[in-house]
Amino acid sequence: MNALRSRFRRNPDAAFRVIDGQAVIVVPATQSMHTLNEVGTFIWQRCEGRTADEIVPEITAEFDVDEPTARADLDAFFAELAAKKMLVLG
């Protein structure tokens, strides 16, 4: 899945809170709860209505990661969040 140019939104039915720097997300559709690590939370807080292309520079500015790696990881991350119904295509 190439999610880099897709525009994502958080699932409007999901609820989340950031606890101790980690996003905790409840997804009613799957009756599941997920916790994101520091990087995942950073992305989660910036993903609303944006594309991966727009977020990659913010990741490379904040974390010690090169752009190709950030792009690949973000693509996989968005695909995983979409599969778990935490994100929807907007």
Binding site: D13, V26, V27, P28, M33
Partner: peptide, 25 residues
Amino acid sequence: AAAMTRLAPGVVQNRYDAAAAEAVL
């Protein structure tokens, strides 16, 4: 955060919608 995730399966709640999810969270 880990505590919330680990506690969640123990919550007796069998119909989640957005309001219920927000309330439990």
